[in-house]
Amino acid sequence: MPLLDRHGAKAEIWTRSEGAAIDNLSHALVDWAVLPEALAQKTRDQRIGVVIPNTVRIPELKLLMRQLSLIAISFPSFGDGRGFSLARLIRNHGFTGTLRASGPLIVDQFAYALACGFDEVELPEASAVRQPVEQWVQALGQISHGYQRGYGDSGNILDRRRSARLKHAAAG
């Protein structure tokens, strides 16, 4: 399925495993239900990623997080915004690997997804056909700065006002 990040289309390096069988896959993407079993077989060179439903609770995930290179949060529909909060929680709990939003998101959610800590979006074929990659990249620049502190790194309005104040004070 088509994959993209803030720079545009991206090649998939992850392979979905059959159940817990990760065999000799270098980057194995496994289902949440079989994650413990898959991790038990993991060799030192293998990378494991997991696809989780947006109902997973952070205490269940937290202990396994260090062994994971990728977490893909499922978006059952674009209107179900739980994935945004789950991504924030996962980042707040220290996950530094790749965070993927997986589902029928729309272009207008791309900036939100990145601000909440996602790195990439994996779309169903039909969504990607209607919404070409250029639209996604272009949408990122539509709103230059948001008002929320602590979301994304593009510089929020509150911190920009603050630095303007400090600069002003220094000059004055």
């Binding site: 674009f78 729309i106 272009v107 207008d108 209607r130 919404q131 070409p132 639209q135 949408a139 539509q142 709103i143 230059s144 700065h145 008002y147 309005i157 920009r160 006002r161």
Partner: peptide, 30 residues
């Protein structure tokens, strides 16, 4: 200047959203 820019950009974004609906990029549900 930040508030002003934010609101202007939101208007432009809405125009773009209407355009994407008309071109079929967005479904009615979206």
């Amino acid at each position: 200047e930040f508030d002003e820019r934010f609101v202007r950009e939101r208007v432009a974004q809405f125009r773009d959203q209407v355009g994407r609906r008309l071109s079929g990029s967005l479904t009615e549900d979206e």
